[in-house]
Design a protein around this nucleic acid. Structure first.
Length: 425
RNA sequence: GGAGAGAUGGCUGAGUUGGACGAAGGCGCUCGCCUGGAAAGCGAGUAGACGGGGAAAACCCUCGUCUCGAGGGUUCGAAUCCCUCUCUCUCCGCCA
């Protein structure tokens, strides 16, 4: 959420951000309401001031044994007026709040302006796409032939966009989770978190999924709970409504979670395979830091996520997202894209974002810079470190052999009980 | 699911026959004194949001309003009375 005063003082910047991001918001209405609200506040405060001083006088009169009937009578009317005005202000503030919650974050200066992924800026490539003598199989075919992915069974039991991982496939999934968590906690100094997989509505609003993207979320019937679309939501909200100790910053957290996404509006896209599932696993990295540190923290966050792909030996590239691909809440975002032979292109496997104070303001996450100083909003960042399902797909496709087997990256060997290859089961 | 207790400022903890103020005390923290320096000790200070005015790149000053889990009610006036909700804790039951 943007600061109300910031919007008031910089409506042009807000309008530009909306345009560049391809978002819409009721900016003019907001500004009108803002003016109206201040007018009403001024009125009601004058009345309240009068009521307060007269009430004191009533108390004094009563103590002195005098009659205060007239004053009490007059204050009845004043109180009624106050009540009406307060109600009006409350309604205006509510409308302003809902407008404000729908204003997107302002992109940082260095973010390229653009409307489609064409205008994203590749930053660097690491590794080379493999050369296959035969045409490579897609991971869903490999998974079926190896007997480790069963989409049909999932369709029968649940529905489309779900999968059963079987045997070595299930173990590979678990191995990747453990490998990534170990890497980030032991080498990159993140604190491991195992969060709730459901959160209440306020948390979803805190990180920016709601109220704007209700249709993307799974809501649990008869409750206020939502299945988390990413561990970002519970972990960022871990410190909601808190004032953190400035000395403790930055805070680094790494969390495994299952992620649930309705994928509304993605009908017909990536219908096959592991790329777009309603449920997938992910190890997420979350940072809380001082505002002046967040630029640098984003760079190290990207490096931390990249190391996963480097150690696995997967070819990938880093791309700086243009304004149109930034998303609603981010001020700056890098995607890591892994090479997928079946698509013959790079596909997103991690998103690393700096949210500036956008989430912190929504969720009320502040820190005290020093003793006796005023609390300020932290900056929050997060990134996938990385998405597990897409990693499995990338491993299957990139490391497939002509005989239909798949090499398991050496770093995973200890996590696979020494197994080095996936063979048909 | 049943019975009970509680939710106050950065933390802890008073305040419930409604009218002395955001609210005693303690801790923490800041500044000053003390000291060669530190600790202890002594003194002063220490919530936030919003609105008006002033000063103004930021920090700031001043007046006012609101905030004692959230929302509503009673009242001229509520942290203090009533209602609803949420959360926490204890005991019992059930259960992975």
């Amino acid at each position: 959420m943007l600061d109300m005063k910031f919007v008031r003082d910089n409506p042009d910047m807000v309008a530009k951000a909306m345009q560049d991001k391809g978002e819409e918001g009721e900016l003019q209405e907001f500004l009108n309401l803002d003016e109206k609200r201040r007018e009403k506040i001024f009125q009601v405060e004058q009345l309240k001031n009068r009521r307060n001083s007269v009430s004191e006088e009533i108390a004094r009169s009563k103590k002195a044994g005098k009659d205060a009937g007239d004053m009490i009578q007059a204050m009845r009317r004043v109180s009624a007026d106050i009540k009406a005005l307060d109600e009006e202000i409350r309604r205006i503030a509510e409308d302003m709040e809902s407008a404000l919650l729908n204003f997107p974050n302002i992109p940082l200066e260095e973010v390229p302006i653009g409307h489609s992924e064409e205008e994203n800026l590749p930053v660097r490539h690491v590794g080379e796409p493999p050369n296959f003598t035969l045409s490579p199989k897609a991971h869903w075919d490999l998974g079926r032939d190896l007997g480790i992915l069963d989409f049909e069974a999932a369709g029968k039991v649940t529905g489309s966009r779900f999968v059963f991982l079987m045997g070595a496939g299930a173990r590979l999934e678990r191995a990747l989770i453990n490998f990534m968590l170990d890497l980030h906690t032991e080498k990159h100094n993140y604190r491991e978190i195992f969060p709730p997989f459901m959160v209440h509505r306020h948390s979803m609003v805190g990180t920016g999924q709601l109220p704007k993207f209700e249709e993307d979320a799974f809501r649990v019937q008869h409750t206020d709970y939502y299945l988390i679309p990413t561990a970002e939501v519970p972990v960022t909200n871990l410190h909601r409504e808190e004032i953190l100790d400035g000395d403790k910053l930055p805070l680094y957290y790494a969390a495994y979670s299952a992620c649930f996404r309705a994928e509304a509006g993605a009908h017909g896209r990536d219908t096959r395979g592991l790329i777009r599932q309603h449920q997938f696993n992910k190890v997420e990295l979350v940072k809380f830091c001082r505002p002046e540190e967040s630029n640098e923290e984003l760079e190290t966050l990207v490096r931390d996520a990249e190391e996963v792909l480097k150690l696995l030996g997967l070819p990938y590239r880093v791309v700086l997202m243009c304004t149109g691909d930034l998303g609603f809440a981010a001020a700056k975002k890098y995607d890591l894209e892994v090479w997928l032979p079946s698509y013959n292109m790079y596909r997103e496997i991690s998103s690393c974002s700096n949210f500036w104070d956008f989430q912190a303001r929504r969720a009320g996450i502040r820190y005290r810079p020093g003793p006796g100083e005023k609390a300020r909003f932290v900056h929050t960042l997060n990134g996938s470190g990385v998405a597990i399902g897409r990693t499995v797909a990338a491993i299957l496709e990139n490391f497939q052999e002509a005989d239909g087997s798949v090499r398991i990256p050496p770093v995973l060997k200890p996590y696979m009980g020494g197994q080095e290859r996936l063979l048909p089961e």
